[in-house]
């Protein structure tokens, strides 16, 4: 501060240097961020080009960023016998749609009750939910309960229920709804509206940004889930997409068998390597396509979450 006057006097030289510093930082910034962006995108390009490489070329030269021999064989095979993939797709879509709508509704409703400042036990219930993030019984009791007590093994419900609600989302929802003025609750109550009606008619419409964000987080979790299937699903009719991909990646014999069941005559050699990569892309496709449009909701979700309620 004391040097303000002095600085004013040397401004021309200082300004020049400052300008040079800015240029230097810009160079560092553009170069580094371009490299980081390429680092993040590179694997996707690699998967794409590998899936479009002729199998014999992969066997001979390995995966390559620029294919030596271009071929759409893997994709045509996938789309020629799509039964298994479609089945996995429909399981995932069903689970995602049902799980997200139920989960979002319950998360919002729970968040709303906890956001009500006039609710006497809000802190007790908040702690009841929050404690589950601090301590858990571990995998084994949880697993045994689902299998032996709830008998959910090999049911579609086991793909939905475990991901239905998440304390973190409830807290984000609660803090968002806490920012809605109390006056809205008060005046609606004076008009004789029930708590549920207030939630449905007033709070839900006002919470659209939070609902969109949390809904997408829940949907992404369902879409990418393979863990519950790994633990609980052995029936191939109930395999969700990511788990199906997991199985296929690890087990070429399984892939061959599956292809045989669906009618592919496997005297020919399957283009296994390019097929693995093609399957990976097809399983990720919808997320990659939706990504540019949904990205901003996730960004706002991160900032929602960093505001403590």
């Amino acid at each position: 501060m004391s040097s303000t006057v002095a600085n004013l006097e040397v401004k021309p030289a200082g300004a020049k240097r400052k300008h040079a510093d800015r240029v230097l930082l810009s160079v560092i910034g553009y170069v580094t961020l371009t490299l980081l962006a390429l680092f993040c995108l590179f694997p996707f390009v690699l998967i794409l080009s590998s899936s479009l490489t002729e199998e014999s070329s992969i066997i001979q030269y390995g995966f390559q960023i620029f294919p030596k021999a271009f071929s759409t064989e893997a994709y045509s095979l996938l789309f020629k016998y799509p039964a298994d993939m479609l089945k996995a797709y429909s399981v995932t879509i069903f689970v995602t749609v049902v799980g997200t709508s139920c989960g979002l509704f319950l998360t919002a409703m729970t968040g709303y009750v906890l956001s009500r400042r006039d609710f006497k036990w809000r802190n007790h219930f908040s702690f009841f939910f929050f404690f589950t993030t601090l301590f858990s019984g571990g995998l084994v009791p949880w697993y045994l309960m689902i299998v032996n007590n709830l008998h959910l093994k090999d049911t579609i419900l086991v793909l939905i229920l475990p991901l239905l609600m998440n304390v973190f989302y409830i807290i984000v929802m609660k803090s968002f709804m806490s920012s809605i003025p109390d006056a809205i609750n008060e005046s609606a109550k004076i008009d004789g509206a029930s708590d549920f009606l207030i939630f449905r008619k007033l709070i839900v419409p006002l919470s659209k940004p939070a609902l969109a964000t949390i809904g997408l987080f829940i949907a992404l979790a369902y879409w990418n889930d393979w863990y519950n299937a790994l633990l609980f699903i052995s029936n191939s009719d109930l395999m969700p997409l990511q788990y199906y991909l997991y199985k296929m990646l690890g087990n070429m014999d399984g892939m061959r068998k599956a292809m045989m069941e669906t009618g592919v005559v496997v005297n020919m050699d399957l283009p296994t390597e390019s097929l693995k990569m093609a399957m990976t892309l097809v399983a990720t496709g919808p997320v990659l396509v939706a990504y540019p449009f949904i990205q901003k909701y996730f960004v706002s979700g991160l900032t929602l979450g960093s505001v403590k309620g």
Binding site: L33, L36, A37, L38, C40, L41, P43, F44, L220, W223, N224, D225, W226, Q242, Y243, L245, Y246, L249, T280, A283, T284, V287, L288, Y291, P292, Q295, F298, V299
Partner: peptide
Amino acid sequence: TAIFLPYFISWVV
């Protein structure tokens, strides 16, 4: 947009 993309894919991928 580029650096956020890996967050969206499953561990299987």
